[in-house]
Simulated scan of single mutants.
Amino acid sequence: MNQEDYALEDAYDDASGTDDDAEATRRDAGEAESSRASRGWWDRNADEYQSEHGGFLGDDRFVWGPEGLDEADAALLGPADGLAGLDVLEIGAGAAQCARWLAAQGARPVALDLSHRQLQHALRIGGGIPLVEADAGALPFRDGSFDLVCSAYGAVPFVADPVKVFREVHRVLRPGGRWVFSVTHPIRWAFPDEPGPEGLSVSASYFDRTPYVEQDEQGRAVYVEHHRTLGDRVRELVAAGFRLVDLVEPEWPAWNTQEWGGWSPLRGNLIPGTAIFVSERA
């Protein structure tokens, strides 16, 4: 355990509350405001998130989203027996569950997250994964440091300038390396974020890219999420120097009976909830 790890562990008991009184709206939110809101929100809500979803995520599984698609079955990073010895960066790692799975396959993962509190949970679970607290738009690594970069709902939905993040990923990847990430499926932005029948009627334009913002009484953003269409995401990847290899839209499996926010068996059997982009560094 290094000095930074000790600092994270010492601060473990300093959690604060959630944002129950925040007002939801749609308005512009730039790079700095989005980053600040994400760091604060995840620091305040990491405990609740890990308590509510930790059982589903496990301590050392690689789950791509609420549907429960497991990397052990999907092999979107490549065959599991080919991961041994690879340098892998997980962006938006949370409690580093995915990184632990990668380590169990013989890879050398690094878990990066913007949230100090999420990384404290990574320390709590343990496993000796190297942890880095940093913004995905300014990765603190040398060029060509990694063979793979991955992110399961981490960073990408919350950044105002995804091309900047993708270019950073391109920079730290070695030639031919894969960049695989999952996000809320863009079509879900046209529907209310409700798991029941009320979430099955279109209520907004799929083409409205105005950020979703939760703000406090002073109008300061405490949570920001950015919407892009499928076409936007493909163009962003190409602009950053990637080649799209696959676009996976997981179907809802029969075994998964739980609800998670707006995700549910009812909706998952009718519309996709997650989009996974598999790309390679050109």
Rank of each mutant, 00 (worst) to 15 (best):
A282D: 14
F62D: 10
V278A: 12
V224S: 03
D135R: 14
G127K: 06
W64N: 07
G241H: 04
F158A: 12
R100M: 09
I276R: 09
G17D: 13
S115M: 01
R220D: 14
P186C: 11
R36G: 10
L119P: 10
G106I: 03
D147W: 01
D60Q: 07
F146C: 04
E133F: 07
G154P: 09
V224H: 00
P66G: 04
V163E: 12
A111F: 00
L230A: 14
P109N: 01
L77Y: 10
L148V: 15
V234Q: 08
R188Q: 11
G78Q: 05
G199D: 06
L76V: 10
Q97I: 09
R124T: 01
G126D: 08
E52M: 11
D43C: 02
R174K: 15
Q50V: 14
S34N: 07
F207Q: 00
Q50F: 13
A104Y: 00
H116S: 14
F207H: 12
E168Y: 00
P195F: 01
E251Q: 14
Y223N: 06
A93D: 11
F146S: 04
L123G: 01
S205F: 01
A11Q: 01
R26H: 11
L270H: 10
R171I: 03
I276C: 08
I129H: 00
A99S: 15
D216F: 04
V88R: 00
R124K: 14
E31H: 12
A204E: 11
Q50A: 06
F277G: 03
A134Q: 08
P253H: 05
I276W: 03
V63W: 09
L57T: 04
A138H: 13
Q120T: 12
A282E: 14
A282V: 08
P253F: 06
Q218N: 14
W263C: 12
T18R: 12
P211H: 08
S115P: 04
E133G: 06
E168F: 02
R117F: 06
P250A: 10
W64R: 00
L76G: 11
R27C: 06
R174T: 04
D21R: 10
L86A: 11
L173G: 03
V222W: 08
H121N: 05
E249Y: 09
D28E: 14
T210D: 10
A46Y: 00
S205E: 05
G78I: 12
D81T: 05
P66C: 07
L114I: 15
G54W: 09
W179Y: 15
D87T: 00
L131E: 01
L131D: 02
S51K: 13
D5H: 11
A84S: 15
D13E: 10
G241S: 07
V149C: 15
G85K: 11
L148T: 02
A24P: 07
P272W: 02
S16K: 12
D20V: 13
G126N: 07
S279N: 00
R27W: 04
E225W: 03
D5T: 15
P186Y: 00
D135T: 03
N269L: 04
D21C: 03
G137T: 13
S34G: 13
E52Q: 13
K164S: 13
S115Y: 05
G68W: 07
A275I: 10
D193H: 10
G126F: 10
E168C: 01
S279M: 04
E71R: 11
G106Y: 04
V224M: 00
G273C: 06
R178Q: 10
